[in-house]
Simulated assay, not measured.
Amino acid sequence: MAHDHDHTDAATGLPPITDDDLDRDPLTPARRPLWVRLLGLFATMVVFVIALELMGDGIKAIGRGSFDLEGFLRTATDSPLLGLITGILVTSLVQSSSTTTSLVVTLVATGTLPVPSAIPVIMGANIGTTVTNTIVSMGHITRPDEFKRAIAGATVHDFFNWMSVLILLPLELLFGVISRPALALAEAIPGVDSGGLGDTPFDQLAGWLFESVLGENGWVTAAVGLTLLFIALRYLVVFLKSLVLGRSEGALDRYVFGNPLVAMGFGMVLTFMVQSSSVTTSLVIPLIGAGVLTVRKVFPYMLGANVGTTATGMFAAAIAISSGEPEAVAGLEIALCHTLFNVFGIVLIYPLPFVREVPIRMAEFVGELAFKNRLYAVAYVAGLFYVLPVILEFIF
């Protein structure tokens, strides 16, 4: 079999995956029928998504009662910088930008929070939501080569959102480049009476497990979610590798990730359907870790997910309008601010190659650091998403 490793895969730079490599795992021998592997992949993805939902439910339950999210958002937005930090911290804690943005939209729609104070929180939520796929990349920590690729694929999303904030927050504070067009659009829309898509089947199943099986115990739920996450992650990689032995890798590259606009559209539509950018961005981390996709291929997909996740805020605004809230137009305005922030970030950063390279190079640098010492990756997640925001909250 030595001749199998005489060359490397042109797409990944790694030795090609052989039948012998996959036959070591009894659950997914490469010679199993394609439909068996596809069914196994689907089942593993279901477990993966439910694990993310359970982890989020558990973390929210842990904080419930001791952490007044709504009150915290009202009092911790006195300045743009504090609002940004608050958005990062709250979203990192609940691992859901949808939760943060929906609550912000509701607070704005009821007149509790003014739009100028809410915009930095929305921007911070965009950064905070990337913590989930970065945590997911930690599932590869025992395999250095996979971990290097996975952490780079996860953090490219972080660095893009940071760049968007660094460019657009000053422009918004000086010229209202986001709020002005958002207000014009909100006033031009005559009325919305949709109540949104409601919970997905994954939300409902995770909710049933949380309430009926796990007894609404936050610590137990979070632990179960994390355990399922790592198990699912392991077999996602195995199933994905088994599928790319044939033409699947070429098809994936050709029809989804080969064209940046298609990848961007796919990320947007998928996120709109599941109403969670954390889920859709986390799903591709095993693909990157396995060497099936590269950071550059996945980058536009991540940007599409950024836009797709703004649908949740739009639904929250629609509910406020249909319920006759007096400041409902302001709620719609902040929801549109979220959408425009993500769209403007893509327009300003992605079309220019030298600007587009910045988050990619920074992500690859983090991958190299993590490859040398995995503690760098742990310090990156803990410091950027939790320790630093908490310190800054106390300072400001």
Rank of each mutant, 00 (worst) to 15 (best):
P80C: 08
P26I: 07
S97T: 00
V307M: 02
V104E: 02
G71N: 01
I62K: 00
L103C: 03
P201K: 08
Y235T: 00
I88E: 07
L69I: 00
L336W: 01
P190M: 00
A311T: 14
G258C: 10
E333W: 08
P351W: 06
E393A: 00
H7N: 13
G345M: 13
V49Q: 11
I122K: 07
P201E: 02
P144G: 06
T280K: 05
G215N: 00
G139Y: 05
S164I: 12
M268C: 14
K241E: 15
E368D: 10
A10T: 05
S137E: 14
M45I: 14
T106V: 00
P389D: 07
D57L: 07
P351Q: 02
P29N: 01
L228C: 12
A335N: 06
T281H: 06
P389Q: 03
L107K: 11
D19S: 11
E146N: 03
E357R: 10
E216R: 15
W162Y: 15
A318C: 06
L174P: 04
P359D: 05
F385S: 06
P190T: 00
T18C: 08
A184L: 12
F371H: 04
T221W: 12
S117A: 14
A2P: 04
D4W: 06
V279A: 03
V237I: 08
F315R: 13
I285P: 08
R74S: 05
L252E: 14
R31S: 14
T310G: 02
L228I: 02
V390C: 08
N217R: 15
I395G: 10
T28C: 08
G331R: 04
D57R: 12
